[in-house]
Amino acid sequence: MTHNNRKGIQSVNRVSAINARAKKPARPLSVRLAGELKKNWALYLMILPVIAYYIIFAYIPMSGVVLAFKDFKVKLGIFGSPWAGLKHFERFFGGYNFWLLLRNTVGISLYTLLVGFPIPILFALLLNYLKQERLRKTLQMVSYAPYFISTVVICGMIAIFMDANTGIFNQIIAGLGGTPVDFLSNPRYFKSIYVWSGVWQGMGYSSIIYISALAGVDPSLHEAAIMDGATKIQRIRHIDLPGIKSTIVMLLIMQMGSLMNVGFEKVFLLQNDLNMQASDVINTYVYRVGLIQNNYSYSTAVGLFNSVINMALVIAANQLSKRLTEESLW
């Protein structure tokens, strides 16, 4: 109580503060608002451009999804354009490539999740038990590096290493007496190339959070386990994994939420006419019909479908984890 009063007196001038305190129960909203603004004006001023930013670049575009239910005419603008009902959705669901897009999108993300999610955990655990201190530090440093390389350069490197004539993989194949394979032109290899290059680029960075979670595991548990003669594998199973369970679950929920959000840049950059069968995903389709073919309404409808599924996935994953582990994002 005295604590609060002291603050009040300092920020507002003395007389009005005492008045305000005396009248506290009956103070009208406008006076309270004015007092609050006077006290915290700097905070409101700071947050103003931030709110403006989110209104303009997040909430106005969100309202722009009505475009999905309209026939966009440039002259009439978003809100003046005539309604089209569910026409665009029907066209998308009935389109020849709907199942292909869905299969590729879900396929690539499930593959990414299955491979890309456990590997950083495994890496963190193994790194944690590595006896060679210097190797551990070096490996940690080196494994973060690819994360900072741009997607364009990563894809450029993929193209170099996967080259049908001069790439290292084909040199190895040739050395073993096989026939060279043009990896990037063959739909069969696309998903694997995408996922495993992503593992190479991201596993070090993704492991940071697990490494720091492992550092927080109670060391006395390990001491007790060693006394009892537990092996390292037993310690991993019964101490480390339970210790970082909540971190794992949190990250898993977050990943589930982006299941339909295959990284646009990388797929787009690795895409070519020959591997389209495996590489065309919803995100790249939205770009192609939207900005290349200028089919604004249709593109928005496809995008909206994608984000609605995403939304449902986050909520479902969160609900599931709440029930199973009492761990949730909100």
Binding site: V65, L67, G303
Partner: peptide, 18 residues
């Protein structure tokens, strides 16, 4: 208000139009 934008966005075209 901020967290909502993490999970929901207008998408490519509505943002482009803004």
């Amino acid at each position: 208000v901020l967290m909502v934008t993490m999970y929901f966005s207008g998408g490519l075209i509505p943002t482009y139009l803004v």
